[in-house]
Simulated assay, not measured.
Amino acid sequence: MRLSIRQIRYIKDVAQFGSILAASEALHISASSIVAAINLAEGELGTALFERRPSRGVVATPAGEKFVRAAQMLLTAEAEFERTIATLKTRNKPSSEIRIGCFEPFGSLFMPDLIQAYVGRGGVPNVSLFEGDQNELHNWLVSGTVDLVIAYDIGPSFNGNVTPICQVPAHVIVAADDLLASRKAVSLREIADRPLVLLDLPHTGSYLLALFDGLELHPRIAFRTRSYTTVSRAVAAGFGVSVGNTSPLSIAEHDDDGIVRLQLVDKLVSPTLVIADSYGADKPDFVRSFINTAQELFLSSGRRLSS
């Protein structure tokens, strides 16, 4: 077939997301490029891969399901090939730089502390930090732009070896002068009627709102932003309360930026903080050292995987 690996991935992602528009947004490419890939494949196969449903996305036909299964095998083999080649290039070659991708809010919360600890124990001194959303991290890892990523286990799965670091349960963020600030813990029901400041990054916003949906609560979103720093400042300024997962490694009762973090008493599923790399079992020493540093640092701060 004349399809490229990239076009095959487009078609696989359309089946995964159930929508050309959703796949376009997740992959950060135009919908027309995806449509062109589908049309090319359907033209060569002489059959439809998707049934178009106006206003309801698409659903794979039986032929489409077979295509997607074959595509997944091909893409898995491609990822394994890239991991093997990367290992051959780096296994015996000292690295002068480590390229780290991190979920954007982590940059201001704990990445400087983590990188300082890594360099302090003999890690690569030259660090390039790429801060992005879950989709960008996935694309950077697959393309080889970064050596590893540190992120949540939500959104697109990473095509690589994933090491779980710790659980990150959700918590509530309120202004330091809020009436709730003197509390140690609250429930989502107690804040459901308050204006909500939402960290509206891909997958993150829907995950946070799903916490309320699971309890049949419907918060009023008063402030949306893609910046965690802006979330904190908006809460401190009185725009509303917020819900987050990760906090600074040295957790103080009152943050320096005028906010307070309160535990949630609700029984909620916690995402896991993970480090994903493309090397599999043959990790170069500089990558293995970074993972070990992260595990030790989060464990020493009292955060661990649930038993």
Rank of each mutant, 00 (worst) to 15 (best):
I98C: 01
V68Q: 03
E51K: 15
S95K: 07
L45S: 05
E78A: 03
A71P: 07
K93P: 00
S30N: 15
G64Q: 05
P54F: 07
P54K: 09
P54V: 07
A79W: 10
T90M: 12
R99Y: 01
T84P: 00
L88N: 08
K93L: 06
S30D: 13
I34K: 03
A71D: 12
G43A: 09
G46D: 10
F81T: 14
S32Y: 05
E78S: 01
I38W: 06
T76F: 06
P62E: 12
E44N: 13
F81C: 07
R52H: 13
G101Q: 05
G64A: 07
A77S: 15
A31N: 10
G43S: 15
I100R: 02
P54M: 04
R52F: 01
A79E: 15
S32A: 07
E51T: 13
G57N: 11
L88S: 11
A26C: 11
S33C: 03
T61M: 08
I85N: 09
R53K: 14
G101L: 02
I38D: 08
F50T: 03
G57D: 08
A77W: 09
L49K: 02
K66S: 11
L88V: 11
Q72N: 09
A79D: 12
I34D: 00
S30T: 13
I29N: 05
S96M: 01
A63N: 11
N92A: 10
R53S: 06
K66C: 02
F67L: 04
E78H: 08
R52P: 06
P94T: 00
A41M: 12
S95Y: 00
K89W: 00
T61Y: 10
A26H: 10
T90A: 15
L74K: 13
S32P: 01
P54C: 09
P62I: 07
A63Y: 10
G43L: 06
I38S: 01
R99D: 00
V59P: 03
M73N: 13
K89Q: 14
V59G: 05
L74F: 11
I29R: 14
V58L: 05
E104Y: 09
I34F: 05
A70C: 11
S32V: 12
N92M: 03
T76D: 15
F81G: 04
R83T: 12
M73C: 04
V59Q: 15
L74Y: 08
L49I: 02
A31I: 04
K66A: 14
T90E: 15
